[in-house]
Design a protein around this nucleic acid. Structure first.
Lengths: 247, 247
DNA sequence: TCGGCGAAATTGTGATCACATTGATCCGAA
DNA sequence: TTCGGATCAATGTGATCACAATTTCGCCGA
């Protein structure tokens, strides 16, 4: 006879370390990277609760590093702490979504333009490879691979310039819309997605800053605005479980 | 014969709770608010180390809530964790400063414009009161009161619109330049500061979104660019102690 | 069936401890 | 004098515990 709160299903995808997130350093750093990766790629969907002991058990660590990781991720907007002190992936509604789009269109073209002079041939080759892998993911209908590739493509550009302000801001935005985009793509399928990155690649090759900014802006708008507004017209996403759990 | 690392002087200003930061809720929340307030108002200067036990002792709490608060503040860019795991207030250099200015000029006019329709008479009165208090602080040469008032003025505007994306981003920016601006103002004195807020107030009264955006932008540029570039021309600020302490 | 109450389970929080790591100092050898 | 090694103190980290707060569930009565 089980008493107490329903156990949420395991947080699919926040799992054992893989090559990308398991490097030396404190355990809480590793947990943080795993958690943020799971959010960016949408492995955790809006409305989902995250508990210290649940995540700790899943990752095979004590609750301490999980606490610290959750504190970091929530400071960046990827998780919210309710009045009841419970932690969950925030729901997405029209206003918040609109702000995310706006923030992205303000910040990401700027970061791309600042990075442009620093994009060398090696980085350009890597961008091409990532773009190819995105195309493969789209053909396969692999939403998660698409999202991971999309993230990598953008940040491969921005990271060309060692930024300590703009890029962390942008990273925090990606944390915030990743879970929702995953649920959107899951509903609509990858067939609805179009890979606009070739325009950005052309602009980079041409060293055309204005064209690059416009390509990034268009990528954001076309990638986020037309698709997800359809879903949000039906009301916030992720509120069902949140409402149930909120004090 | 004292062994070990030099004890940094007490973190002036991160002190007992005052009315603004002492509300109900978890202790780590209170420590966080105290810490961020200290950074925004420049009570801690660039390069300054922050230790768990040091801050815990100063605040009369255990290191646990301090850990969580430091983790939050560092996630927002207000503190940096070095390769040696030590925590300190980051140094300011020309590139980082330029990015902060740019990020502010991208985000704050947007937040102000979005807030404009929501600014009622009460909030306008509060803005006037804050602006008056800023003028008083400038006359008195009270740098900290000036900084606190300036922060309050800006966020009293932006908070008119319930924002969950733009305003937290802007808050994280203020965390990042607060300590440096304090050292700048300390060197130049308040006589070098001009209160431009009346232009923003006029734009709000006139309900002129474009004028408001321009006023905020001008406030940022004139407040940050001309003054601090003079100081930064001499090299990064806050690196002396950082260099000494870095592994 | 619904609502209220009480008990049990779960959850986050703060305290504390031990330990690994880092930094500073001292001492001896070259 | 300089350099390297040993020692000690300080620091961050992860583990664990007890406790307060919140949630869940079962029972009972209307």
């Amino acid at each position: 006879m089980k008493r107490g709160i329903d156990q949420p299903p395991p947080l699919g995808g926040v799992g054992p370390p893989d090559d990308e997130t398991a490097v030396d350093g404190p355990l809480h750093d590793r947990v943080y990277r795993q958690l943020r990766h799971a959010l960016v790629t949408g492995r955790i969907v809006p409305g989902r609760a995250v508990t210290l002991r649940g995540l700790a058990q899943q990752l095979g660590v004590s609750p301490m590093p999980v606490r610290e990781a959750i504190r970091r991720v929530s400071a960046e907007g990827g998780l919210v702490v309710g009045a009841n002190r419970r932690v969950w992936v925030p729901a997405m509604d029209g206003e918040r979504y609109d702000e995310l789009i706006r923030a992205r269109t303000l910040l990401e073209p700027e970061a791309a333009v600042r990075a442009l002079p620093h994009i060398d041939r090696e980085r350009l080759d890597r961008l091409r490879d990532i773009d190819d892998s995105i195309d493969v993911a789209l053909e396969r209908g692999d939403v998660e691979a698409y999202m991971a590739g999309n993230h990598r493509f953008h940040f491969e550009i921005y990271a060309a310039n060692p930024s300590r302000v703009l890029v962390p801001l942008i990273e925090s935005l990606w944390l915030q819309f990743g879970p929702f985009m995953r649920s959107v793509y899951g509903r609509l399928g990858t067939a609805a997605l179009v890979d606009h990155h070739v325009v950005a690649l052309d602009a980079i090759i041409a060293r055309d800053a204005e064209a690059l900014a416009a390509a990034i802006r268009a990528d954001i708008l076309e990638g986020m605005e037309l698709i997800a507004s359809t879903v949000l017209a039906a009301g916030p996403v992720g509120d069902e479980e949140v409402d149930r759990r909120r004090a």
